[in-house]
Each structure stands twice: as C-alpha cells, then as structure tokens.
C-alpha cells in the first residue's frame, strides 16, 4: 500500500469531519474562534490547517447555525464568541447520529464474521 494514500486518506477524513468537529466543540458552550481552533488541534489533530476553521464558522453563521456575541475580555478588547443556534443544535444532533451510524457500521463489518 502506498504510504501516501494513508496520509491523504487521513487528511481527507479529517477535513470531511471538520464541520462536525466545529459544531461538536460548540455543544453546550460558547467559545471564541481561537479557543475552537486550539481545542480541535489539541484533540488528536482534528484540524490540519488551523485557518480552515474560520471560513467554516463564517459559513455556519451565514446559514444560521451559529451566532456571535462580543464579550469584554480581561486581557484586552472584546472577543467574538460563537455559540450554536437551535438550528445548529438540531443539525449537530443529526450529524452525530449519522456519524454514529457510520462508526457502528464500520465496527460491525470489522468484527462480524459470516457463518
């Protein structure tokens, strides 16, 4: 097997899951952009190019999945915090369910043996 294939596949898989990762990071809390990036980077390298997160956040905002609020920061000027909207929470639940199905499906096919 071409070792490049695995690297490419891993990269593409992470990219494909990035939107889900961003929504999941925002579940139950509000975070500012930099914090989202740091969390995803720390969680097993869920994000390859950190900047990729920002266009996704912008698109989510335009689609009404997240909303932003400016909050005063003790370290300086106000920060822009992102949080899920009800529509975003619904989509996250649906995506997590779909992801769960995929994960379970892979688990099943990799463990089940034909009679």
């Amino acid at each position: 097997m071409d070792p490049e294939f695995l690297a490419n596949w891993t990269t593409q898989m992470r990219k494909g899951l990035l939107e889900l990762s961003v929504l999941a990071a925002l579940r139950g809390q509000r975070l500012y952009g930099y914090d989202i990036v740091r969390r995803l980077a720390a969680a097993g390298g869920l994000v390859m190019s950190e900047g990729t997160v920002y266009p996704i956040l912008s698109r989510f905002k335009k689609d009404g999945l997240v909303e932003t609020t400016l909050v005063e920061s003790a370290e300086g000027p106000a920060r822009k915090y992102y949080q899920l909207t009800p529509k975003g929470r619904q989509l996250l639940a649906a995506m997590l369910a779909a992801w769960g199905e995929v994960r379970d499906g892979i688990d099943r096919v990799s463990t089940e043996r034909l009679p």
Partner: peptide, 9 residues
C-alpha cells in the same frame, strides 16, 4: 476547498 479534495491526493 476543505473537504472537497480527492482522497487519492
């Protein structure tokens, strides 16, 4: 283009 690239690279 995040997520739009080919797996084959």
């Amino acid at each position: 283009h995040a997520g739009a690239n080919s797996v084959a690279g």
